[in-house]
């Protein structure tokens, strides 16, 4: 093995284990300075990766608190270090990882909050697609409207959670002054979209979720409305379609 490779191997091992001695190639500077100086690199690495996880998961950070988040992040960084220097792509499994830790049992929805935040980050960096407005449908003959297949926006993500994850996330990131009591028995459907450059987080009801999911699968308006009506007899496809158009949920259609 070449000496550079050997040194980098030793350094990697020493960075992984805070208790490990620093690489033997590090020259003595002062009586006690050797590992203290090497610790600058350990610290830089830990702080940089931890700050990145905090930036990816701001609501999760607030919900579990700084101390727990930092401890979870430290474990995660060592067990699942990044492979790529692109930090927007690091930390996908951090939510699941944290939810497995004994201390997070008191916050059962933490993995879903993390799932939402990770999806927001991915959507934020996705390629740009312009949404269409509802006026685009005026070219369609009224009798053909029910057979139209709307193309859902490529940034659209539907999160089906057994927890009120959208409401929890919104109140946490907005740091609402009064604590809001959520009925944890009410699951939520959360629709993420990035029609332009800002990611929007929309809590929608179950029938609306069935409607948009059917459209996403390429079904016609009539079929999608049927799916929603089975769930909720008072579902109004016209109103719901307008609401989705104003969120920027569609980027085209086929007749």
């Amino acid at each position: 093995m070449h000496s550079t490779e050997k040194f980098q191997q030793q350094t990697s091992e020493a960075l992984h284990n805070a208790m490990a001695p620093c690489p033997t190639q590090v020259l003595q500077q002062t009586d006690n300075g050797q590992s203290r100086r090497f610790n600058v690199y350990r610290n830089n690495r830990a702080v940089s990766l931890m700050e990145n996880l905090q930036a990816c998961y701001p609501a999760m950070h607030r919900l579990v608190g700084d101390e727990f988040f930092s401890a979870a992040a430290r474990h995660y960084i060592n067990e699942h270090p990044p492979a790529s220097p692109v930090m927007a792509e690091y930390g996908e499994s951090f939510g699941e990882f944290t939810a497995q830790l004994p201390g997070s049992a008191a916050i059962p929805y933490i993995a879903d909050v993390a799932r939402l935040e990770w999806a927001c980050l991915q959507v934020y960096h996705q390629s740009n697609t312009a949404p269409i407005s509802i006026q685009a449908l005026t070219s369609v003959a009224p009798e053909n409207l029910t057979e139209v297949k709307l193309h859902t926006h490529p940034t659209m993500v539907l999160i089906d959670s057994r927890w009120p994850v959208g409401s929890i996330w919104l109140s946490t990131v907005k740091q609402l002054p009064t604590p809001v009591d959520f009925d944890l028995n009410n699951g939520e459907q959360v629709l993420l979209l990035r029609p332009h450059f800002d990611v929007t987080v929309n809590v929608i009801d179950q029938s609306a979720a069935l409607f948009i999911e059917a459209l996403r699968q390429g079904q016609s308006l009539e079929y999608a409305a049927g799916c929603a009506l089975k769930e909720n007899q008072s579902f109004d496809p016209g109103t719901q379609m307008q609401a989705f158009f104003s969120m920027g949920a569609f980027c085209g259609f086929t007749e």
Binding site: T4, F7, N44
Partner: peptide, 17 residues
């Protein structure tokens, strides 16, 4: 190193290699 990114600028020894 070995497909892991350390998120820091780590030192190299200064020699011909």
């Amino acid at each position: 190193h070995n497909n892991e990114f350390f998120s820091d600028l780590l030192p190299v020894p200064y020699n011909r290699e």
